[in-house]
Design a protein around this nucleic acid. Sequence first.
DNA 1: TTGTAAGCGTTATCAA
DNA 2: TTGATAACGCTTACAA
Lengths: 357, 357
Amino acid sequence: MSTKKNEKKQTINSDYIAPRKVTIKHIAKLAGVSFSTVAKALRNDPVVNVKTREKIHKIASEVNYYPNLLAKGLKNKKTKTIGIILNDLKNPFYSEIYKVIGDILNEKDYTMLLCDSNYDQKLERKNIITMLSNGVEGLIISPINESSDNIKFIIESGLKAVFIDSLPEFHNINYVYVNHERAAFLAVEHLILNGHKHILLLNGPEELSSSQHFLRGYLQALSKYKIKQEENLITFNDISIESGAEALKEIFGNKGIREVDFTAIVSLSDLLAIGVYEAAKEMHFKIPDNISVIGYDNIFATNYMHPPLTTVHQPKNRTGLYSINILLDQINSDSQECKKMIIDPILIERESVRRMN
Amino acid sequence: MSTKKNEKKQTINSDYIAPRKVTIKHIAKLAGVSFSTVAKALRNDPVVNVKTREKIHKIASEVNYYPNLLAKGLKNKKTKTIGIILNDLKNPFYSEIYKVIGDILNEKDYTMLLCDSNYDQKLERKNIITMLSNGVEGLIISPINESSDNIKFIIESGLKAVFIDSLPEFHNINYVYVNHERAAFLAVEHLILNGHKHILLLNGPEELSSSQHFLRGYLQALSKYKIKQEENLITFNDISIESGAEALKEIFGNKGIREVDFTAIVSLSDLLAIGVYEAAKEMHFKIPDNISVIGYDNIFATNYMHPPLTTVHQPKNRTGLYSINILLDQINSDSQECKKMIIDPILIERESVRRMN
DNA sequence: TTGTAAGCGTTATCAA
DNA sequence: TTGATAACGCTTACAA
C-alpha cells in the first residue's frame, strides 16, 4: 500500500521537466501534510491548525497556486459560470447589455461564457448545448424565436434561464422584455401625428420574434388612425447597416425620390436606420426633407448623427441589470418563483422626422 | 463485489425523482452494456460493434445526452475554450474584434470566455487567473500595461496567448499590434499640414500602454515639424464619451472659445472624440469651425456624425482574425514559433478638420 | 487536528 | 467486441 503511494509520488516527481500546473497534491508534499488538509486549509476551514493554515497559504501563493475549476465544478456542480447567448455581438444594443452584466459578474466572481448565434436557430441550439455541456449555472438568452423548440429545450433541461428581448409563452420562466409592440406603436404614431400616411417598415428577419411584435405594433398604429396597410411597405431584412442601405437602394431602384410611395420609414433597429442614412448619401436624398426616419434602440451613436436620429429608447441598462439579478437570485436562493418584467420603451424626438402638416 | 456494484446502481435509481443530467452511465444501463462501451460508441470507435453503436447513439439522442465538458476537460486537458480579456466590452472598437473572433470560434467548435477588466490592473490579474482556473486552451488579451507583472504572469503560466493592442517586450510571445505611434503621428501630421499649431491631446489613461505609444507619436510629429510641445495641451482621460466631454468642459471652464489656446484636438479614441462633439453641443462651439477634431479607431458611428469625423482607421477585423488564427494554430500544432504582427493604421479624411492655411 | 477514501463524469489501458 | 479499472483535481464524510 505505502509502496504504491510512493510509486505514485515518484511518477509525479519525474514529471518535473514539463512545468505542470500545481495542484493541492504538490502543495501537500511541499508542506508535508496530506492533500485533504491542504484542501481544508485553502478554504480556511477553522478545523485545521492556524500555523498549518498559514504555512499552506504561504506555499500556495509562492507556487502561484490557483484551483482547477473543472475539478471543482465536476465535484460540486457549481461552476461560477453563467452563459449569455445573443445574436450579434457587434450590435451596440447588445454590447450595452452585456457590459452591465459583465460588471455585475465581476463583482460576484462569476465568469461569462458568451456566444453569438448570428440569428441562426441551428447555431442557437448548438450554443445552448455548449452552455449545458459547460455546466453554466444559469443562462441569459435573447432567443431568435420565442416559440421555437430551442426554448422548450432550455426549459426541459432544467437550466435556470432568463429570456430577454422576447416573450415566450410559458409560465414557468423568467423574462425581461422591452415592449416591442409598444415601441413600434409609439414610433408609427409619432410619424402619423406628423402627417405621414405612407410609412415603410424596415423590419428584422421574419422568423425573429422581435420582428413579429414590432409588426404588430406597426399595424396597430395604422389601424388606430385608420390608415390603410400597404403590403409593399412591409419589408423584412437582416439587422445591419449594410442591409438597411441595401434595402433602400433596392426599393429606389431606378425611381427618383418623387416617385417613391412613402414619406417615412420606421425600423426595428437603429442599425437599419443608419443604413437609411447611408443610402441617403449614395442616392442623394435628404433626411428628413425627402424622407423621415425613426429608429429603435437608441444606441449611443444616434445622438450624434446628422440629423440626430429620432428613435425609441430601449432601457438596455435595466434589461441587463434586471436579467442578471434575477438569474443570480434564482441561482443562489433556490427560490423557484418566476419573474416576468415588461419594460416600456420611450420615444426620443430628435431631428429625423419632418412635420408634414 | 457485485453486490456493491448493485448497490451503487440502486443509488442512482433512487435518484429518479430529481431529473438528473444524463451521463454515459445512464445510457449504459438503458443499453445494457458497460459504460466504457458507451464511451467508445459515442466517439464512434470502430472497435465497438456497429449494431451496439447505433443502438447507443439512438438512446443517447432520445435522452438528450450531452457530454460533461468539465469531466472531459479534467481528463484530457482540452476544454475547447478560449479566453478573451478586454478593457471595455461596450467600446465598439472591441466589439468588432470579438465579433470576428466569435465567428471563427463558432466554426471551430470552441467556446469563448469573455472578461472585461475595465482598465483596472487588479481586475485584469483576477481575470487572468479565472482563465487559468477554467483551463482555457488559449488567451487573447488586450493588456492594460505591456510591461506589467500581469504579462510576466501569463508568460510564466505557460498559457498560450496572443497580445493585442500592445507591444510587450518579450521575445517568446505573440502579438498583433496596430501601430499606435504611427497612428498618432498620422493624425497630428494631418492637423499640422492643415495649419494647426496648437494641438490638444486627449489621451487615454496614463498607465495604459496605448496612451504611451500614442503620446510618443504625437511628440514625434510635433518635433518633425518643429512645433513646440506645450505641457498643458497633454491630457490623460478615461476612455469614454462622457469623460471626453468632461475634459473639454473643464478646459473651457469660464473661457470663451476665442480664449482657448488650441485650435485642434487629437484623441486616442473615437469615443473621446465623440465626447468633444457632445461638449460642442453644450458649450456652443462648432466643429470644425472653432475647433478641429481627429479621432482614432474608426468605429462605425464616426462616418455618420455631424460633421463626419476625420479619424485614423484601425483594422479591427484583421486584428481579430489574425489573433484568433495565430492562437488556434499554436494550440493545434504545438508549433512554438512566435508570431509578431504589426499592422499599419490608415488616415481617413472626413470633415472634422478645418484648413487654416 | 490530520489523514483516508470515495466519488463527480469522463478517457484510456488492459484484461477477458 | 466488451468490460473493469485507474486517473484527472477537487470535496467531504469518516476514521485515526
